[in-house]
Design a protein around this nucleic acid. Sequence first.
DNA 1: CCGGATCCCCTACGATACTG
DNA 2: CAGTATCGTAGGGGATCCGG
Lengths: 120, 120
Amino acid sequence: MNKPISIEKRQFSEDGDELCPMPDIAKLIGGKWKLIILQILIFRGMKRFNELRRMIDGVTQTMLTKQLRALEADGLVERKIYAEVPPRVEYRATKRAHDLEAVFLAMHDWWIKDNPPEKK
Amino acid sequence: MNKPISIEKRQFSEDGDELCPMPDIAKLIGGKWKLIILQILIFRGMKRFNELRRMIDGVTQTMLTKQLRALEADGLVERKIYAEVPPRVEYRATKRAHDLEAVFLAMHDWWIKDNPPEKK
DNA sequence: CCGGATCCCCTACGATACTG
DNA sequence: CAGTATCGTAGGGGATCCGG
């Protein structure tokens, strides 16, 4: 035991006690906005760009665009452009993202259970 | 307007309208090292400082100390100092941290299910 | 309405040295 | 062994302007 947990690649211990690669996961859903975006798209369904922007307090256009592009590149968000005037772009969670639902539910349960309401 | 679709009521707080606060959660378990540290302490039990350091590839003393202090301040890690020579300090996951187990398991399942093995 | 292109700042992160 | 103390850096994040 006590094998190194590589921050570059997934690695499992000998005894079958699998530790999945947190650094890789963090790359996909880490950062300041990705979890918020995914949460909305997963649990509240498709949103347009500005709709999303209004729902996420403090996010700028630039950052929202960047994060959405990154999520799209990782296959977590689907982007659909309508050739209209004014432009319309819809974002929705992919299947891969929807499979994250269990993670969000677990986080929610944890938050409710272990975090005092008045906690900063 | 953006009323919850309510796939799962659990995802929303008491007023039935709010998603649980991802930014707050990110504060607790975000960053480059916290998830790795927690994963080890939760699934492999108590570790000493240098033991932990050797298990986490690439972490420096400074960062490991900082992250452990932050986790301790948030009540996720317990620090036990033994007045011995040489010094011995033990770290273990608190109950609050152990309740995160479900989150890690959900992440693991997701990773196994939706991530191609050769994915960079 | 939905961005791209720039420029800039802050802080998370890290290298190194030193200590009880 | 298990830390602090300093100092330095990169890149994530942001403000602003411009365009289809």
